[in-house]
Amino acid sequence: MTTYDGFAERSDPPRRSYRPEFSALLPYALPLAILVLWEIGSATGLISDRALPRPSQIIATGASMTASGELFTHLGVSAARALAGLIVGGGIGFALGLANGLSRRWDEVTDTTLQMIRNIPHLALIPLVILWFGIGEGAKLFLVALGVFSLIYLNTMHGIRSVDPQLIEMGRAYGMRPAALFRKVILPGALPSIFVGLRYALGIMWLTLIVAETLSASSGLGYLAMKSREFMQLDIVVLSILLYAVLGKLADTLTRILEGRVLRWSPAHADR
């Protein structure tokens, strides 16, 4: 600021230069490049349309099914099944992870059994699941819940046990009751590990669901892919697979956003 004859000359505030955040688009550069190369390969005959439909055809099919409402119906059914399985299996895994992380006695009684269950491939149980639950929604819910259970359980228990003991002792020294100590010290310290387990569980959730929806389902993306395979509608089959990939990425992105907000106090997440 400069002055003339005792009067202050006002200077305009510096203008901010707005530049597009190319870093936000960078993760999508490789998938877009693959789609472009895929389209070019199909157009030039390097990739046969009988083996793999071109992206433009898949997009046109998706647009047609969206306009008719069929795609949203199958998407909604699959999302509801995935969410229900995540809530049931994740809730049980979270509760047992808390119990075994906080109590050595609970850990001695249940951890061996839970580790044995964890090491059984849950998709190998499909014949038994059909005998137990039939081919209805119960079988699909059980498989998804079992798939996500162990990941939530292990990471919750690991997070509880990884909390710095000195912080716990400090909380006790300040007179914190057990409930306040858990709420203000133990659970916040375990949240980073719990979110890691949740992100892994989301991937297993969609992987299990696409298999579970082949059990004589009448709706859902897995059913859509199986029905289209029988009629050799490869564009719908590939569309269903790509939608699973998109849903998985969307779920992971939403989890990372939630993780960044919940763990804003952590230096590792402060810049997110």
Rank of each mutant, 00 (worst) to 15 (best):
T2G: 01
T2D: 03
Y4C: 06
Y4W: 14
G6F: 14
R10G: 13
R10W: 13
S11V: 13
S11N: 09
S11L: 14
D12M: 11
P13G: 11
R16P: 07
R16W: 10
S17V: 13
P20C: 04
F22P: 00
S23F: 07
L26C: 06
P27I: 04
L30W: 09
A33S: 15
L37T: 14
E39G: 12
E39D: 11
S42Q: 08
T44M: 12
S48C: 04
R50A: 15
L52D: 01
L52Q: 01
R54L: 11
P55S: 07
Q57W: 12
I58R: 09
I58F: 10
A60T: 14
T61V: 15
A63Q: 15
H74E: 06
H74C: 08
A80V: 09
L83G: 06
A84R: 01
L86M: 13
G89Q: 10
A95T: 15
L96Y: 10
L96V: 12
R104N: 07
R104D: 05
T110Q: 08
T110H: 06
T112A: 05
R118Q: 09
L123Y: 08
A124Q: 10
A124M: 14
I126F: 12
L128S: 01
V129T: 11
I130A: 04
W132G: 00
G138V: 03
A139S: 15
V144T: 11
V144G: 11
S150A: 15
I152G: 07
N155S: 13
I160V: 12
S162Y: 00
D164M: 06
Q166W: 07
Q166K: 11
I168A: 08
A173V: 07
R177I: 05
A179R: 09
A180N: 03
F182H: 00
R183H: 02
R183L: 08
I186Q: 00
I186A: 02
P188T: 06
P192N: 02
P192D: 00
I194R: 01
F195C: 05
F195N: 02
G197T: 08
R199M: 05
Y200K: 10
A201K: 04
A201C: 06
W206C: 07
T208R: 04
I210S: 12
I210C: 10
A212C: 06
T214M: 14
L215P: 04
G220P: 10
L221Y: 06
Y223F: 15
M226Y: 15
M226K: 14
M226D: 14
K227L: 12
Q233Y: 13
I236E: 13
V238D: 06
L242A: 14
L242C: 15
Y244C: 04
K249M: 10
T253H: 12
L254Y: 11
G260Q: 01
V262I: 09
R264P: 04
H269I: 03
